[in-house]
């Protein structure tokens, strides 16, 4: 057991501010791990450290036994760790299909000549990546919008497109930063079912940051709680719901709880 995705004493300081301190946990293969905590607790920072957006000021990230600390983001994705962003981020001027294609092409690399001048090899790569695009679009129910410009989609669809782009890179684990934020309660339920389906269909593990407690408690196998950049608890959804520190720091004052 070399572990799947391991965070080892991870820390990040921004000048004088300790955004994250000594965070150690493991996201298990094939499971959904939740990362929760009040606003400003350091969840997004944790994602940024995992995916290479920032270098940590302390600690290590191990993925499938490999030290991926400090790799640039595009290398981290290549290693099989894809992320989505808290805000709806897409390539706004490209079609939905093209957005997903840009992720899918990661698994169809080209040599320098073909990547500059195109030609038959490049065409073949695109048509093979097309299979992934079609599959991902179907799974996220984006097929009807395939030729729409991403920037013109409704907010909820843009968020789903963000997930689709990440999924198209064929990750082993998908990191989702508040994917259900801004959705109405019906949409949140539908989205939860969609995530469960994606996990089976694409044989995924997930690490998910969310404020919708109902969603978190339903889909997570394991939950890690952050507060002021520190881990204050971890355990099963049932354990977390009962933990007095968590209730005090987070659940107690939150309308979504229960």
């Amino acid at each position: 057991m070399s572990g799947f995705l391991k965070l080892n004493g991870l820390g990040k300081r921004f000048g004088g501010l300790a955004a994250l301190t000594d965070v150690t946990f493991e996201a298990t293969e094939g499971k959904v791990t939740g990362l929760i905590g009040p606003n400003g607790a350091g969840k997004t920072t944790c994602f940024n450290l995992l995916t290479g957006t920032f270098a940590p000021t302390a600690g290590k990230v191990l993925f499938q036994g490999k030290d991926i600390t400090g790799l640039p983001p595009h290398k981290v994705v290549e290693a099989g760790l894809a992320r989505t962003f808290q805000s709806a981020t897409t390539f706004p001027k490209a079609s939905v299909r093209e957005n997903i294609m840009r992720g899918a092409l990661l698994r169809h690399p080209l040599g320098p000549v073909a990547s500059i001048l195109g030609g038959a090899t490049a065409k073949r790569a695109v048509s093979r990546a097309e299979e992934t695009v079609v599959e991902v679009m179907d799974a996220l129910e984006l097929t009807p919008y395939a030729d729409r410009e991403a920037g013109t989609l409704a907010y909820g669809h843009q968020k789903r497109l963000g997930v689709a782009i990440g999924l198209a890179t064929r990750p082993r684990i998908l990191l989702l930063d508040e994917p259900a934020a801004g959705l109405n309660p019906d949409e949140v339920d539908r989205f939860g079912q969609m995530l469960t389906m994606l996990k089976e269909r694409f044989d995924l593990s997930m690490l998910i940051v969310e404020h919708h407690m109902r969603l978190i408690m339903r889909i997570c196998d394991h939950i890690v709680v952050l507060d002021h950049g520190e881990m204050i608890a971890e355990g099963s959804p049932a354990e977390i719901q009962k933990d007095p520190r968590v209730i005090e720091a987070y659940l107690g004052g939150d309308a979504h709880a229960g």
Partner: peptide, 12 residues
């Protein structure tokens, strides 16, 4: 269009 997303999609 989106440098951060491009990088996160595996584009160097």
């Amino acid at each position: 269009e989106n440098l951060v997303l491009a990088e996160a999609s595996g584009i160097p």
